[in-house]
Design a protein around this nucleic acid. Sequence first.
DNA 1: TCTCGATCCATTTTT
DNA 2: TGGATCGAGA
Length: 735
Amino acid sequence: MSAPLPPHLLGLNPEQELAVTTLDGPVLVLAGAGSGKTRVLTRRIAHLLYNGVPAENILAVTFTRKAAQEMKHRVTELVGPAAEQVWVSTFHATCCRILRTDIEALGFTRRFAIYDDDDQLRILREVLRENPESELTPSKVLARIDFWKNRGYDPDRVVAEHREPKHGGLIAAWRAYERGLRAADAVDFNDLIGHVVKMFQEHPAVLERWRERFQYVMVDEYQDTNGLQYKLLRLLAEPRRNLAVVGDDDQSIYAFRGADVTNILNFERDFPNARVIRMERNYRSTANVLAVANAVVRVNEKRIDKQLRTDAAPGKPVNLRVLPTEEDEAKWVADAIGVFQRRDRIPYGSMAIVYRTNATARLFEQALGRARVPYRVAGGKRLHERREVRDVLAWIRLAILPVDDAAFLRIVNVPPRGIGPSTLAALRDAGQAAGQPLLATARSYATRAGPSAAALKGFLTLVESIADVARTGTPAELVNAGLVRTGYRDMLERLAQEEEGARRGLRAPRSESRERLLHLGQLLSDAAVFRAPDAGSAIERTQAWLDQFGLAESEEVVPEGGAVTLLTVHNAKGLEYPVVFSVQLNEGQFPHARALEDADGLSEERRLAYVAFTRAMSRLVITRSATRASNEFAPAKQDDPDKPPGRAPDRTASAPSPFLFGLPLDAVEGDLPGMTPTTGAPGLAPLTVGSKVSHPKHGAGVVKKPRDPRGVIVLFKGRPRAVAREDLTLVPERR
DNA sequence: TCTCGATCCATTTTT
DNA sequence: TGGATCGAGA
């Protein structure tokens, strides 16, 4: 006789139930796409609570805020308000909260600023100004620093491990960058996690407190953890080993930011006696969709062998389409969406267009606009990435944290007040000599007579006045001050009127400045609705608002009646749609040309394709274009209504994506010849470093550099040669 | 010394 | 497309 099951255990399959109820000790859940991963995590939290684990001892970490919100929401549905006390948040937000409590142990103040890439570049530009001849560019250095920090390295470690002089300049720049951050009392994105790790390692008492707090740790999308996050989890979970991770190595698509699939592959080694639970039953897609998705990812070498199964019907075949140009492709998709909506009564909100790169969005936006199909672009430019928003926030930041040099540099002359490069250079030199932040330097400068003294004085008065508001005001009042007192709003207002005057009569949607004012309005309302966590000073409340705002992702406004969603594959992860259009399946687009440059790149692109395809529940449509514009960066060609829609002059043929080779033919339909060439050599097969190729004249060789101005660099008998890509045939790898 | 317009350039994926 | 940089004019 068994007691009735509590509601959170109802309706689970045996694997899911095991994953939910195995509470103690390390657990690895290998959860294929659509196998009920979120369900397992939320039920598991419910089960912990049900078993008397206090809510505040539970930590669930995700990668995106959307995932965190979704999880919290679903736990609340299961257990009610008790869910409030459970920490469900992203890695970055979790670490941010930890640092706001304890960062003083590392010599920062609790008011520390969080630098986004814009601020990071500002620091690096300062750093690199020292020797302008250097070949280092700020963005290259930043990419490299990011790369290392993601893996948990510091400059000393890189020097020790590489001991190659070629990194000399880079390392020096990195060290200077770190000094810059510290001087500005700022941390970058990676530091949020890195500093917590460092603090835990150096201050056992602090670590002990947080271990006591988080007795049960859960991690979503474990395959996407990087070296730093891995360290963090180990530190937190080590003594009790109550660590449950959920993931799918086939969906590891964040290698570029340090995600390390070996974390999931080695889990059993790292946590001996781990319970491994495989969830291979897919509840999302039709059998045909799964067959196609499986075919794409199956050929990857480094993967845990598995096969997603479903009891669902085969469903409609996966539809493959080739269109003459990218524009035709976009138009065809837009039309198909219209047909689905009218003929099959599929709501717009149930359809999504998934692409590899953000730049693709515009093309499809235009086509959808012409076809009058409502759409929304997910993960487009986020509010806090917009220049005007960052500007206003910089005023606030500087008012709160006077040492924040990046904020200072950002707004010292915005709106323009006559503080130009030469004044700045003087400030910089004086500041550096005195070891003082820029704002303080400006203060001593303004008292002296000089050409820009008056302008500086005006600026300083402004900062003071905003700082006054910061001491007592709400975030909204502060935003308002940053908007009004600084003259920022007036500046935009004036510009908007000019722009609108200039384009009177034209059928222009909205002037750019008007658009910016709108964004600032959104900023203001975000601040206005912000609910500060608990008491605390006005400044602490503002800080909390800044934190959540800075770590937030795009606010999505869904038009009434639903809208087609446009998103990148990365953004699509974790989501599902009844109808999915996976577009631009051309070599060089998807897989992206840049990804072919390193050996593992192609595997990751395959996983991306797998993610894209498995978003589809009942219908998957895959499209590509037979030609592409040769110059992708040329301005878009204007459609001239008088001329027939002639082909743009410079187009080149494009090869189908290699992911389309070897699809199961009984699961697909459509333009098979253009999509899955079954005869002859597979066109221009993708070349990656290490690909084996053969050449009519030089014979067998190994690719050294697939993309080079001179052609493809291939090693023939150990000698590098540049050869034309067309002459190469790919020697198939053993399967 | 600053501002603004013209020109050139690179261009994946994101917390 | 947007950003960074450079030169002309204020």
